[in-house]
């Protein structure tokens, strides 16, 4: 700026300063307006889903199975059981593999290897879930038919990068002093990793995994190709058979011309959303608190 003569600067605001202040106010106002508009719209979406869902909610939803087309009433009990089982199997697959891969990257891998694995995880995370769906279809379903465990494999592929990436982050936050302290006591590397590093990280690893579970519970595209679209109307517990799932029920009910099925979709969406939101909010809250604590150490 022109700061030539200090004495000549007047502290009274000139036209130029007023213009700058005006621009500042306009820009801030626009930013606040845009933010409020967007947050308002987003809140509106959530509230409208929750309200409609709440209105359609009844006990039958949890106790009765889906009815065959044309009948009225019924619930989503078969979908709830199916989603629970499929997500549980997916978690059982993704959790150990994801955590082990993260342990390798954070504890064993040199820089080069770690970077390649991290890159693979990032790429995997960028694969659209519908591509994961057709991949699982091509690999597992073609020639042998639909089964719930195949849907679990597809869901596990969606969860894997989420689990591994959050675990890597957490392991990186574990202070090196802990590792060196353990080595100094003559404790071997594998014991250090399993009994010193992991215990201090496991809480955050699990919260990261919870976020992945929340994501998997709402995934629809991978299920479309791996567990049948002709959903069984009874509760199915054998993972070798096709299972109904809550997201699939919402999808089909939402496209149905039958208003009572639309209502059931709202109720199912309510249940799914509450589950996902509670899970992810709690996990994020705990994660943020733990991370603050770990960073502070």
């Amino acid at each position: 700026m022109e700061a030539s003569g200090v004495a000549s600067i007047s502290l009274k605001s000139t036209g130029r300063s007023r213009r700058r202040q005006r621009t500042n106010h306009v820009a801030q106002g626009a930013s606040i307006f845009a933010a409020f508009l967007a947050i308002g719209v987003l809140a509106l979406v959530v509230i409208s889903v929750l309200l409609r869902g709440l209105k359609a909610l009844n006990l039958d939803l949890f106790t009765k199975n889906q009815v065959t087309y044309g009948e009225t009433g019924g619930g989503i009990a078969n979908g709830l059981v199916g989603t629970a089982i499929m997500v549980a199997i997916a978690t059982a697959i993704a959790l150990p593999i994801g955590i082990l891969a993260a342990v390798y990257v954070a504890e064993f891998g040199g820089n080069r290897v770690a970077r390649v694995v991290k890159l693979a995880l990032d790429v995997l995370n960028g694969v659209p879930s519908i591509v994961v769906g057709i991949f699982a279809y091509a690999l597992l379903v073609v020639g042998s038919g639909y089964a719930a465990w195949k849907a679990s494999v597809a869901l596990a592929i969606v969860m894997l990068p989420l689990v591994a990436r959050s675990t890597i982050e957490v392991l990186r936050l574990v202070p090196d002093a802990l590792r060196y302290g353990s080595y100094a006591l003559g404790i071997s590397k594998w014991r250090t990793v399993l009994f010193v590093v992991m215990p201090s990280a496991i809480g955050s690893v699990m919260t990261g995994a919870t976020l992945a579970v929340a994501r998997a519970a709402g995934e629809t595209a991978p299920l479309l190709f791996t567990t049948s679209i002709f959903l069984p109307n009874q509760i199915e517990t054998d993972p070798h058979h096709a299972m109904a799932a809550v997201p699939l029920l919402i999808l089909f009910d939402s496209e149905s011309p039958d208003a009572s099925l639309n209502n059931q979709a709202w109720a199912a969406a309510f249940v799914l959303m509450i589950f996902v939101l509670v899970l992810s909010l709690t996990a994020r809250y705990i994660l943020a608190r733990r991370e603050r604590k770990l960073r502070a150490r």
Binding site: A101, K189, V193
Partner: peptide, 27 residues
Amino acid sequence: GDTSLRSISGLAAVGVIALITLIIYEV
């Protein structure tokens, strides 16, 4: 112990790379 943990976790890491390759190949 060291070797086992390193190779088991290494296997998982290689599995991730194999998986993404397999997805691209299969599609």
